[in-house]
Design a protein around this nucleic acid. Structure first.
Lengths: 158, 158
DNA sequence: GTAGAGTTACTCGGATACCCCATGTCCGAGTTATTAGGG
DNA sequence: CCCTAATAACTCGGACATGGGGTATCCGAGTAACTCTAC
């Protein structure tokens, strides 16, 4: 899995602490000492997926495109890592003896079915968790984090 | 995910159709027109993991190291693809402001927790399915496959 | 003081290099079947 | 005919190339804030 997924999720959570204001990739990157241009690339992907909105120029930056409880963790993962399953069925049965050339082995191969079923439970788990859930968990377990983060972004001078 | 996982699972199922006999990587590869040496590499990994046993020389080859109902799909996936989770938490929180240098953020970061929880359901699903289950499914849905496969391996002359 | 036009600085966005790992290949160590020869 | 030893062939095992995608970077298009001037 792409490493940018981790960055994207953390950035989305941080954006929740700075509502109604565009935050630049530069500042989001400085928060974790990440390479600015590369994080920008990930944020672009989130923008293309409709999760963030971007504005150019001074006072520009990124912000959430919709309410955090309408953004699932799966949305972010899919935006960064792509929609393909981890297990790619290449239908090797088609190269085997007695194969049906016009059959779709991605659907009828029991191995493909089993792997796909497991991935569906995985995706269902991620789809059931929203950015808002993550924020709530942070606020419950670490009450100071929200204010600390807000202050850090407010006081950042460079 | 490594493509060899697909090959390994299919090969394990095929080995179930040829009990009590060592099958060479060459023949297993010929069944699906796979590159022999590369499939051999995957079978080596299964051997290191204790899933297969290998014998050298003429009449050598691979066979299952234990009963198919004692080999889970997860065992095979782990043997080929490694034990690491797909989502690797790099603990970027450690580089953030107000971080605890001696904390293990892989355990306390809510994002890491969520991703890990989802992967656990994924692994649990794969752990609950055995090679024997796959074989049984094949035999139920495609009754001719078992005999056809046996005959193909028996009649292979090269 | 105010409006407006020009300038400046800043940000995103995509095009461009770099590098590591999955993919693919090859040759040697070891083992067993085979065979030839002698008893 | 039978036993033994040398031979040969076959297989796994790991070491060695190669290519594609993730990683990282840079520069240009566009935009909004700022400033200066004229009224």
């Amino acid at each position: 899995m792409n490493e940018g997924v981790e960055w994207a999720l953390h950035s989305c959570v941080n954006l929740c602490f700075i509502p109604g204001e565009a935050v630049t990739a530069k500042r989001l990157a400085a928060f974790y000492n990440l390479p600015t241009a590369y994080l920008n690339k990930q944020l672009q992907a989130l923008t293309r997926a409709g999760i963030l909105t971007s504005t150019s120029g001074p006072k520009g930056g990124f912000q959430l495109a919709r309410r955090p409880d309408k953004i699932s963790v799966l949305d972010v993962v899919t935006a960064i890592d792509g929609p393909e399953d981890a297990f790619r069925c290449t239908q090797i049965l088609k190269s085997g003896p007695g194969a049906d050339p016009k059959a779709d082995y991605r659907k009828i191969c029991v191995i493909s079915q089993s792997m796909r079923k497991a991935e569906l439970t995985y995706r269902r788990e991620l789809a059931g968790k929203t950015i808002a859930d993550l924020v709530r968990q942070v606020e419950t377990s670490y009450p100071a984090t929200a204010d600390d983060t807000r202050n850090w972004f407010a006081n950042l001078k460079s």
